[in-house]
């Protein structure tokens, strides 16, 4: 495959300037693909499925975009795959979020945002702590009291590896209430879906998730949100108080976006950029965003790339501070 793509690209690089076709005339051919680096049901999976459905409904992408689930190592498997095997693939986008920044910051993959092409952030999401509806923790205050009495008495579950983003919610929370972050018990699962199932089954007590992952169960009243980790309440679930309101100063906003494989020609990259810029303004996307409880915060192209690269540097400092990185 690599050979034919390379030839194809070489051909395009030559034909491009000679035929003097404007860059915007580039159109993807055939099927598109969005890699979700986690199992179905988690945040990355939702990020992929949302854009796939919006782009096809608005007709922005002529073919179809199918979603490939590639779980493992909190995004490390997918970024390694994309950086090495999918070079120059113009039809591929990969969903990403802060969770990938953690994977990068922890050095769990030899690849960073510099080896791939960060594309855009299409929304932001609030993280939070969730418990079964019949849990003994009625409010965040109950949880704080229990944590202060014995940090090991509470078991958290989340969809990322230790040191990843769901674990970070727990660690930052512990730090904010004066509990040693490394003492908090955190059980990693493959994606938010599994973490939620384990919490519903009572095998773990509190799930550290993103709101979109919990939305279905929240609406049904099966689980309760103890707190969202933000300065302002969620626009979709305004009943859940913020952690700050309840005396724990934690903010943790999750961006949701995409990167592309390295070596993608500029025309293709720009096409995706413009397509996403248009897509996030469409009523179809607004409907999806409301459904998922995302907040409308976006970043594109270079601004986004700078943002994620800075973020990786900041997280490295934070992880050292918390004792997760030597």
């Amino acid at each position: 495959m690599t050979r034919s793509v390379v030839l194809l690209l070489a051909g395009m690089a030559l034909a491009g300037p000679m035929a003097a076709v404007p860059a915007s005339a580039w159109e993807p051919k055939g099927q598109g693909e969005c890699i979700a680096p986690a199992n179905p049901g988690g945040g990355w999976d939702i990020t992929c499925r949302t854009i796939s459905s919006v782009l096809q409904k608005t007709g922005a992408f002529k073919g179809s975009i199918y979603v490939t689930n590639m779980p493992g190592g909190s995004g490390a498997v997918a970024i390694a795959n994309v950086a090495t095997k999918r070079k120059g693939d113009t039809n591929l986008i990969v969903s990403a979020s802060n969770a990938l920044t953690f994977t990068v910051a922890l050095g769990r993959t030899p690849y960073t945002f510099k080896e791939v092409m960060p594309l855009a952030q299409i929304g932001a999401e609030l993280g939070g702590f969730f418990v079964p509806a019949d849990s003994k923790y009625k409010t965040l205050a109950d949880l704080i009291a229990a944590m202060k009495a014995d940090p090991k008495s509470v078991t958290f579950s989340g969809g990322s590896a230790p040191g990843g983003q769901d674990h970070m919610k727990v660690a930052l929370f512990a730090k904010s209430i004066g509990v040693e972050p490394t003492k908090a018990v955190y059980v990693p699962f493959q994606g938010g879906g599994e973490a939620l199932t384990s919490m519903l089954g009572g095998h773990t007590q509190v799930a550290a998730l993103d709101i979109s992952e919990a939305a279905g169960q929240l609406e049904a009243g099966k689980i309760r949100g103890l707190a969202v980790l933000a300065d302002a309440r969620s626009s979709k679930f305004p009943d859940i108080p913020t952690a700050t309101e309840q005396g724990a100063k934690v903010t943790y906003v999750i961006w949701r976006g995409y990167y592309m494989a390295p070596g993608v020609p500029k025309e293709a990259y720009d096409w995706w950029l413009e397509t996403l810029k248009t897509a996030v303004k469409s009523p179809e996307f607004a409907a999806e965003r409301d459904k998922l409880g995302w907040e409308p915060i976006t970043r594109f192209g270079d601004e986004f790339a700078t943002y994620v690269n800075n973020e990786a540097a900041e997280y490295r400092v934070l992880l050292k501070e918390l004792g997760f990185l030597k």
């Binding site: 922890l106 230790p162 040191g163 490394t182 955190y186 004792g323």
Partner: peptide, 10 residues
């Protein structure tokens, strides 16, 4: 022996 050591709950 070549497996890297990452943070782990004690």
């Amino acid at each position: 022996f070549n497996i890297p050591d990452f943070y782990q709950l004690p």
